[in-house]
Simulated scan of single mutants.
Amino acid sequence: MSRMDADGEALIRTQEPEWASLDIDLQDQEQVIQALVAHPRLLERPIADDGKRAVLGRPPEDVLALLHADD
């Protein structure tokens, strides 16, 4: 997450019933990581990464901005 400007909550599909059933503290990074390893469908996608910066692909314009950042 260090290359993203988003917090950890932005990367999680928190509206999914599966997430609610886990009772995870979003402030506990280790818990969040373990939950995503066990339940990968909860990861918000797509994530674009150019090696320097990463963005969540929603809205798609964020990915386009990343791709054209050096133009």
Rank of each mutant, 00 (worst) to 15 (best):
S2P: 03
M4D: 04
M4T: 11
D5N: 13
D5G: 14
A6I: 00
A6N: 08
A6Q: 08
D7I: 02
D7Y: 11
G8F: 10
G8N: 10
E9N: 10
A10C: 08
L11R: 00
L11Q: 00
I12L: 11
I12W: 07
R13A: 11
R13E: 05
T14N: 12
Q15F: 13
E16V: 10
E18M: 08
E18F: 03
E18Y: 08
W19Q: 06
A20R: 13
A20Q: 15
L22R: 02
L22H: 08
L22K: 02
D23N: 14
I24L: 07
D25N: 15
L26M: 15
L26C: 09
Q27V: 03
D28K: 01
Q29E: 14
Q29K: 12
E30L: 11
Q31N: 11
V32F: 08
V32K: 01
A35S: 02
L36K: 04
V37G: 04
A38I: 00
A38G: 03
H39S: 05
P40N: 03
P40Q: 12
R41V: 03
L42V: 03
L43S: 03
E44Y: 10
R45F: 10
P46R: 03
P46H: 04
A48N: 05
D49L: 10
D50A: 00
D50L: 01
D50M: 00
G51Y: 11
G51E: 06
K52Q: 11
K52F: 10
K52T: 03
R53W: 05
R53Q: 12
A54I: 01
A54H: 01
A54F: 00
A54L: 08
L56Y: 05
G57V: 01
R58K: 13
R58N: 14
P60S: 09
P60I: 08
D62Q: 12
V63K: 04
L64K: 13
A65F: 09
A65Y: 02
A65T: 08
L66W: 11
L67V: 09
A69Y: 06
D71S: 13
D71T: 14
